[in-house]
Every structure is written in C-alpha cells, then in structure tokens.
Simulated assay, not measured.
Amino acid sequence: MVEPSRPLRILVYSDNPRTREQVRLALGKRVHPDLPELDYTEVATGPMVIRHMDEGGFDLVILDGEAAPVGGMGIAKQLKDEIADCPPILVLTGRPDDAWLANWSRADAAVPHPIDPIRLADAVAGLLRAPVQ
C-alpha cells in the first residue's frame, strides 16, 4: 500500500509532448481527495522508460501505445516480463477496439485516445487503490 505522506510517482511515456501534457492536465496534482498528490516523470523515448524503471520507485506507469518508434504496448509487455514487482501499467490505446492489444501487453488498464479526463482519472484512481499483487 502507498504511504499517504509521500507523493505518488507516475511515469508518463509518449514521444508526443502534447500527449504527456494531456495526461498531466487530465490528472492534475491529485487524482482523488483520498489519494496523495501526484509527482510526474515524463519521458519521450523507450530506452528512457527502461532506464527509469530499472531505478524503480514508481507507483504507476502510463504508456502511450501510439508512441513511435517504440510503442507503449511493447514496453508494457517487456516491463511485466522483466520486473518482478512491476507497478500497475495503464496503456493509452489508439482506439477503444485496441483494448485487446493492451490486454496482450499485460497492461492493467487501457484508456483510448483522445484522452477523456474523467475516464483516465477513474482508471488511474482504481489502479492506485488496488492492492499490490
């Protein structure tokens, strides 16, 4: 369980700075009153995701499935395969019908583009409240 006194660390990956900004704006500083504040780390490349994840300490990972040249779904699968205590992963899919691909990638949740702030916040709050597996 997350310590209530420390901010929740969120890794946000997309090659598109606008997508990263949309995620931050949709979630804000606090996704729900009963959860701690959010602290974002934004990355624009797949190798940087891996580097940050190797360092650890994240409570949630949000990956853009439409990122190029390395898509978030491939990274999600790699992280779930290689990190024993991998934090929850949310993948942003290109469309609602791509949820099956997010499932294949072993992502814990998927939200389609365009980003709906309410849907994203609900998914993130649910993942942050979920007991650690």
Rank of each mutant, 00 (worst) to 15 (best):
V61P: 05
P114C: 13
V2C: 11
L120Q: 03
A99L: 02
P7R: 13
G57K: 14
D85C: 08
M48L: 13
L127D: 06
Q78Y: 12
G94T: 09
A26D: 08
L63Q: 04
S105W: 03
T93I: 12
W104Q: 00
L127S: 09
R24L: 00
D98S: 00
V124H: 08
I89Q: 05
A44F: 04
A84T: 12
G72T: 09
R24C: 01
D97R: 00
E66Q: 14
Q78A: 03
V2I: 15
L90F: 14
P33L: 05
R18G: 11
C86K: 06
D59R: 10
I118S: 08
T19S: 13
M73K: 00
H32K: 05
L11Y: 14
I62A: 03
E82R: 13
L120F: 00
I10A: 11
L92H: 09
Y40K: 04
P114L: 07
L8A: 10
E55M: 11
D15G: 15
D85Y: 04
P112I: 03
A107N: 06
L128V: 08
R30M: 01
L128Q: 03
L79R: 04
R119Q: 15
D97Q: 02
V49Q: 01
I89W: 08
P88H: 08
Y13L: 04
L8I: 15
R20G: 12
W104F: 06
Q22Y: 11
E21P: 00
P114F: 08
R20K: 09
L79S: 03
M73D: 04
A68H: 13
R119V: 14
P47E: 04
A76W: 05
R51L: 08
Y13M: 05
V111S: 13
I75V: 12
R51N: 07
D122V: 12
L38V: 03
R30H: 02
A84N: 05
Y40M: 12
R6S: 13
R30Q: 15
V31F: 03
A123Q: 07
I62D: 03
I62L: 07
Y40W: 05
R9L: 09
A125T: 07
V132Q: 13
I50W: 02
L127C: 10
W100T: 07
W104S: 01
I50Q: 05
A76Q: 07
A123K: 00
L8M: 15
V31I: 06
V111A: 10
C86F: 03
V2W: 12
A44K: 09
H113W: 07
K77T: 02
C86G: 05
R129I: 06
V70E: 14
E21T: 07
Q133M: 07
L128I: 11
P36C: 10
W100C: 01
A107M: 08
I118N: 09
V111W: 06
A110I: 09
K80T: 06
P36L: 11
